[in-house]
Simulated scan of single mutants.
Amino acid sequence: MHGLGSDGATPGKSRFDDMYVQPDPRAYFTRLAPLGYEIPHHAQPVFRQLAAERAAYSDGRAGRLVVLDLCCSYGINAALLNHEVTLAELYERYTSDTARRMSPEELAAWDREFYGERRRPDALRVYGLDVAAPAVRYAREAGLLDAGFTDDLERVPPGPELRAALPEVGLITLTGGGSYITERTFAALLDGARRPVWVSAFVLRTVAYEPVVRKLATYGLRTTVDASRTYPQRRFTDEGEWQYAIEAVRALGGDPPGLEEAGRFHSVLYDSRPGPELIVH
């Protein structure tokens, strides 16, 4: 959910930066629970299916496929992709009295055992990218990420470690970070790619994703989106954010009645794969 660059701040949309400087995800879940943040739940079956399809797609390159999760924060998408666990269970776990009494180190050890016991047999390697170093560090310590990076690709090119990792990436996933990153981040990643890279992004209807779609097209990726299917993300924090969302959706030609007007952000799913053209329906 976190962004990859502070320059991407969106006026009118609440920021949650203070959650990501914590040494573990307890504040993340405690803060988001009252808002009903749920987009990782909707992404879980989508990313599992897409990862299976991408893993089965022969690209003629040796080595195991790697998924790169953008704006990965504490590795929530990796947890849901590779383990038999639900988002509801994670909310319950990290807001429990048991978790509340632990030190960050104890929580990480507790998590390593928890996720180790629930590891799926078809688990894929997952790398994470987020400027929030404490969040990425915890995801690594908990065993959710095989590698983690904090490069701010909105500002600078990938560093040597990320550059060395990018040739392994075959699938890029995104939930919630579309408000904070632009085509600059995607271009920096795809410039370093060697495999055919697929991109699956849940993007708020308040965000203009077309510049990213056009940039991906220059790398031979065709993007499809079913704008009629939306995925609720979370409740608005206040009336100001509610009004911002309604106005932003209308400005992009969207229709907020029954969706944003009902009190929640909604996302649409963009799927980008090698192909000749853009399809929007």
Rank of each mutant, 00 (worst) to 15 (best):
L124Q: 15
P196E: 01
G148N: 08
V213H: 02
R184E: 10
E154W: 05
R184M: 10
P157M: 01
A164M: 10
R184S: 12
V213P: 03
A139I: 04
T218F: 02
I181R: 10
F186N: 12
S200P: 10
V203R: 05
T175H: 14
V131T: 08
D151C: 12
R205D: 06
A164F: 03
G177T: 15
A99L: 01
D146K: 00
I172Q: 13
R112G: 00
P157N: 01
E154L: 01
P134V: 00
R140Q: 12
P121D: 11
G148A: 08
L129M: 00
T182S: 14
Y180P: 11
P196L: 05
A201E: 01
D111W: 06
R140L: 14
T182I: 04
E113V: 09
A108W: 00
G170D: 10
A142M: 01
L145H: 12
Y138N: 00
Y219M: 10
L144A: 00
G159I: 14
M102V: 05
D97H: 15
V199S: 04
E168D: 11
T98I: 15
G148K: 02
Y115P: 13
A108G: 01
V169P: 03
P157G: 10
P157E: 09
E113L: 07
V169R: 11
R194G: 02
D97I: 04
K215R: 15
P196K: 04
R163W: 11
L153G: 12
L204V: 07
V213N: 00
L204I: 06
F114E: 07
A208V: 08
S96T: 08
P134H: 01
T185G: 05
S200R: 11
K215I: 04
E161W: 12
A193R: 02
I181W: 15
A217C: 01
V203I: 08
G159E: 14
P196I: 02
A99G: 05
L221C: 07
E161G: 09
P160G: 03
A188W: 07
R222T: 13
